[in-house]
Design a protein around this nucleic acid. Structure first.
Lengths: 129, 129
DNA sequence: ACAATAAGTTACCAAATGGTTACCTTTAAT
DNA sequence: ATTAAAGGTAACCATTTGGTAACTTATTGT
């Protein structure tokens, strides 16, 4: 007679997915890792996201401790810079491993050119078009 | 003048989250990994999921090539067994690494008892209550 | 005085995701 | 003839997530 049962809200994997599973979060982390760290600059790289959603995703990454938001004290127009926290930076190795797994096991769903880029210089986080 | 822009639908990380981010998928993979591989047996371990949603999640895991569904040819009542595919099994090492990362970087959100279990025998996938 | 700029906010809408309850199908056991 | 058991479906509803378009605020340059 088992009494073990599972609760999705306490599942560690579920917590992890929540960290990175916003539609734009992986791409945002990638951009910030590469120095594209201001609101309108990010928006220029991903023009199909709305400002509302961009704000939301950034706020969530901040709330989850992956990014830090810094308002520079210039007068105006306001300048805001986003940085990776230590926790955010520590994700990178893990993300690289996830990508390697995908490149090996999801070949069919990944465009040929991206696979080729990946083979030349391993972690290609996102697809640039 | 940059012309690089990003598309969430082509992002490798986004594809990966889709694989495991259903509310019950990590737990289901865990159960199947541990031999709890029949419909009503799974349902008994996670009584708060509805049969409809359980079916949906299993069908998605199957469509994504992580599980294989097998109807045993007994007469009735119907018996169905789920197995990990090779791809599904290959996820395990990666999942262990994700969990290790979480145990290190999300300590605050993980119940003490689960942290203790993890320290004794590393990968504790989900919380048993 | 007026427009431009950075970084948003507001009100509203649509699609995706998850949930509830009742019902179905096939055969074996009573 | 009826009930039970395994593994589901069907019809419907609620919540969450993402999206659109217009507006805001503070200051600087013209």
């Amino acid at each position: 007679m088992h009494t073990v049962c599972f609760n999705a809200d306490l599942c560690v994997m579920t917590k992890f997915s929540a960290l990175i599973s916003g539609k734009w979060k992986p791409i945002l982390l990638y951009l910030v890792q590469h120095g594209i760290n201001r609101f309108n600059l990010m928006h220029g790289y991903m023009p199909t996201i709305s400002k509302k959603v961009l704000t939301e995703q950034l706020r969530e990454l901040e709330a989850d401790g992956l990014l830090r938001r810094e308002e520079l004290k210039v007068k105006a127009p306001k300048v805001v810079v986003y940085h990776l926290t230590e926790k955010g930076a520590s994700l990178r190795k893990l993300i690289d491993e996830i990508i390697s797994w995908c490149m090996e096991h999801m070949k069919d769903e990944i465009p040929q050119d991206l696979l080729a880029i990946f083979r030349q210089s391993p972690p290609a986080f996102v697809h640039a078009q």
